[in-house]
Design a protein around this nucleic acid. Structure first.
Length: 247
DNA sequence: AGGTCTGTTCAGCT
DNA sequence: TAGCTGAACAGACC
């Protein structure tokens, strides 16, 4: 379920749709395609070809040769399928190509999005390559719990609930700590953990591959020191951490 | 059976 | 103003 690594997999899948002439678009799902009226996305895309596929954090977009962009987001349960073998009631958005293939946003929960010329100006730098100075400034200001701040896609984009717990465990920082209490050394260590955890999850194939996530799932013990893992709601999300090694 | 959940956006509070 | 909560989406899983 989609965090940065799943979004990157989707971006790779989108590359298979490039260069092919669009002959039809099914954009009738008014929730997934809001704020567009039915037919608006079709009118913007039919007759064109997609030329490139991009991603920042969990936000995806493809471009056509005339400069139109189609923004896509996987929500909590979405997948991108190019040339799917079947179709069904979970296909919330569909682009058909002249060659008979298609690009589909398949999403049981309907939390995915398809938008023409989306404004992603509010989306922060990608978690995989956020710079040190930028990270210090964006994460370190204010008083929010550090977990809530890391989940804010406008600050750094790509981290979801699972990755953030993994990152904070690696950095040995308790999720409820206020960012105002973090030293520059804390912030730099946290940034290293963000980059390491994200790159590792990309390599291993998903946001669920972190070492701490296994302990979390089995409501077990900290892989580092064996302490019982605590659970609480922080930043509006269920959060697991080791109260012994995370301070 | 009812509660929870890997995401985003927005309204409404404090 | 920053930051929180709940609603909306709708199925899977405990």
């Amino acid at each position: 379920m989609p965090e940065l690594p799943e979004a990157e997999r989707a971006r790779l899948a989108l590359e298979a749709a490039l260069g092919r002439r669009i002959t039809g678009v099914d954009d009738h799902d008014s929730y997934v395609c809001r704020p567009h009226a039915t037919g608006e996305i079709a009118a913007a895309l039919v007759g064109h070809r997609l030329t490139s596929a991009h991603r920042r954090g969990k936000f995806l977009w493809v471009e056509t040769q005339d400069g139109t962009t189609l923004g896509l987001h996987l929500g909590m349960a979405g997948r991108i399928e190019v040339d799917p073998e079947d179709s069904g009631r979970w296909d919330r958005f569909r682009v058909d190509f002249e060659d008979g293939g298609a690009l589909v946003l398949r999403d049981k929960r309907r939390l995915g999005r398809a938008v023409i010329n989306p404004d992603y100006g509010h989306v922060g730098p990608d978690a995989a390559d956020v710079g040190r100075a930028e990270f210090r400034r964006l994460i370190g200001s204010g008083r929010a719990p550090v977990k809530a701040r890391l989940l804010d896609q406008g600050v750094v984009s790509g981290l979801g609930n699972l990755l953030v717990d993994q990152v904070l465990w690696q950095a040995r920082i308790a999720p409820g700590r206020s960012v105002s209490e973090l030293s520059v050394e804390d912030l730099d260590r946290l940034r290293r953990s963000v980059r390491v955890a994200v790159r590792s999850s990309l390599r291993l194939g998903g946001s669920h591959t972190g070492q701490f996530i296994a302990a979390r799932a089995s409501q077990g013990r900290c892989p580092r020191d064996g302490s019982p893992v605590h659970r609480a709601r922080i930043g509006g999300r269920t959060t697991y951490w080791c109260p012994f090694c995370q301070r």
